[in-house]
């Protein structure tokens, strides 16, 4: 079973060097314990471009699809046997990156 752990960013500053180091330690743990699938940090929402091809011709818009104080700053995709394991990992992940984390199962 795979879960998406979304890192919710709600402050002005980006990750500090201490947070980056803690994230590395957490990533190593995910790999050693066999939970690692994929992870990444995202550039700021200002860099986003939205495409809408539903009307036939592609409509290109500058900026994120949702203007909000909170945005997705990064994510992990993990493999876990059940939600209890995923939540435990999210607790450690939230501590490591010092941000809130949303845990959501893949279909």
């Amino acid at each position: 079973m795979q879960y998406l752990l979304s890192v919710i960013h709600d402050q002005d500053s980006l990750a500090t060097p201490e947070e980056d180091a803690a994230i590395d330690v957490f990533n190593d743990r995910l790999r050693t314990e066999g939970h690692w699938v994929f992870a990444g940090g995202l550039a700021s929402p200002d860099t986003a471009t939205v495409i809408d091809s539903r009307g036939g011709e592609a409509l290109v818009t500058d900026g994120p699809f949702l203007e909000s104080k909170e945005y997705l700053a990064g994510f992990w995709i993990i493999e876990a046997p059940d939600l209890d394991v995923a939540l435990k990992l999210a607790v450690a992940g939230s501590k490591a990156c010092n941000r809130r984390i949303e845990v959501r199962p893949f279909q």
């Binding site: 079973m1 046997p81 059940d82 939600l83 209890d84 845990v103 959501r104 199962p105 279909q107």
Partner: peptide, 14 residues
Amino acid sequence: KAARIPYRMPSAGD
């Protein structure tokens, strides 16, 4: 069901 909340006893620590 969708998030797979397990049907089991919590661990002694939990």
